[in-house]
Design a protein around this nucleic acid. Structure first.
Lengths: 247, 247
DNA sequence: CGAGACGTTGAAGGTCTTCAAAAGCGGTGG
DNA sequence: CCACCGCTTTTGAAGACCTTCAACGTCTCG
């Protein structure tokens, strides 16, 4: 088995100028001076698909942004009931400045590459780099909006609307990352159970709704980890009004 | 009928040093210099119980903190289904810096006094006042945590657990505001319908759960706008593990 | 007092969950 | 290669929980 975690040090790392997420990440606002500080301090990390990046309650020894791959952020109750709060995709930030202990479980869904910092180093950077600080606030406010839109979904949508909302969300984010894509193929790295954690449904209900959407022609070629969406507009309609918009 | 909105200008206003929320509000971190800037720019506003402070989509002409009273923040779908995202209490901030349009409905539940600023003025203050900016980030991160805890509740709790969770939350916040209080009396400014919006339940279910909690002795002296909680620990237990903690 | 808003309670019904069984998929080892 | 195992997915049937619809009770304020 491969190592689940691997850390790479600055010096060996590619320059920020070549970074895929430089226009959407935490560093998007920073000018040359701030970027050079970040460049000097950055550490890369890799996690294998399926490994836990943090458990709720753990001490965090690293904060940073996803460069490639997908992670989920969620919580577990003592009786085992789980809720996923969101999907973390390239550009998203992971970890909370000014707090040493994670409040959430974060799991690598696919293999993941992170670009980040030791928490103390990052806190210092935030203090002396106003553009970084402003971007951090902006991203946090966006996340809060997304969390609230998600709440409306959890509370007030039917199972079918929920699943369609998730598909719309994943499709939007996939399109944003790969703008050249025109085929209606949506990758689904999540299992039915994880989708259920996400939407507050059981895996059986998720499966049944997939079958129903297929029967109604809203999705096609349903496979385990992919599905094609012949008519995204139709899917959006099925998601109900105001599906939670991508950030 | 009284005016629903009333604005008071700086100069006539009490000094920040006397403010009830100075240790928990947006200004809590600021030193003397920053405070004097805030003091010069602040405007008070009053809203009557029941009036809308903003509708989703409205242009915001004011951002600020609640000094007294309670407001709710929520969204409405086109079919009329509503979801409340949170209660805003003294110290909480209302409005989003850097964005002119409100994403949410905000309604005054009781009479409200706000201390705030014109949006452009506040954005300028954020730029030049690092302690204010840092406090803004901290409060936003806290709100994000609260929103996620709320999501777990919406998705994974039964009606009884939901109602108990809300009562625990309101009790905690009431205790925090008035630390001298020892009686187990909880004020409930919300109607059954608003509680339902909050918990994603119908008003009938809320009412039935209140009756059930009374029958089981977990609450007593149930009235329209107040209830007594003889044993808060018991209530907390009924709320299920990990009720969403007050900020 | 009377009107209107808010709250309670009952009965019927729908949606989602729970429990259960079987099929599909992917990897391992004989 | 194929049988076997574990894990995921699908599908069915029964039942729980919450909603919907409806009626009635209660409070408040002009």
């Amino acid at each position: 088995m491969r190592d689940t975690i691997q850390t790479l040090l600055a010096g060996d790392l590619p320059r920020c100028a070549l970074c895929q997420i430089k226009s959407i990440g935490i560093c998007a606002n920073s000018g040359e001076e701030e970027l050079s500080w970040l460049e000097d301090a950055k550490l890369y990390r890799r996690y294998c698909a399926g490994s836990m990046i943090t458990f709720a309650g753990d001490r965090l020894d690293y904060v940073g942004s996803i460069m490639t791959g997908i992670a989920s952020i969620g919580g577990t109750r003592e009786d085992g009931r789980r809720q996923t709060y969101g999907v973390l995709m390239p550009g998203d930030f992971l970890g909370r400045p000014g707090r040493a202990i994670s409040s959430f479980d974060i799991e690598a869904i696919t293999d993941i590459e992170l670009c980040g910092f030791k928490p103390a180093v990052f806190d210092n950077l935030l203090d002396k780099a106003p553009q970084l600080h402003a971007r951090m606030l902006e991203m946090t406010l966006d996340e809060l909006d997304a969390a609230r839109a998600w709440m409306l979904m959890l509370g007030r949508k039917t199972a079918r609307e929920k699943l369609c909302s998730l598909l719309v969300y994943l499709l939007d984010r996939q399109m944003r990352l790969d703008e050249t894509q025109t085929t209606p193929l949506l990758r689904l790295p999540l299992t039915r159970e994880r989708i259920g954690d996400f939407l507050a449904l059981t895996l059986e209900t998720v499966s049944r709704q997939f079958s129903a959407l297929k029967r109604d022609g809203i999705i096609q070629d349903l496979e385990r980890h992919a599905v094609s969406i012949p008519d995204p507009a139709r899917l959006r309609q099925e998601a109900g009004t105001d599906p939670f918009h991508a950030r």
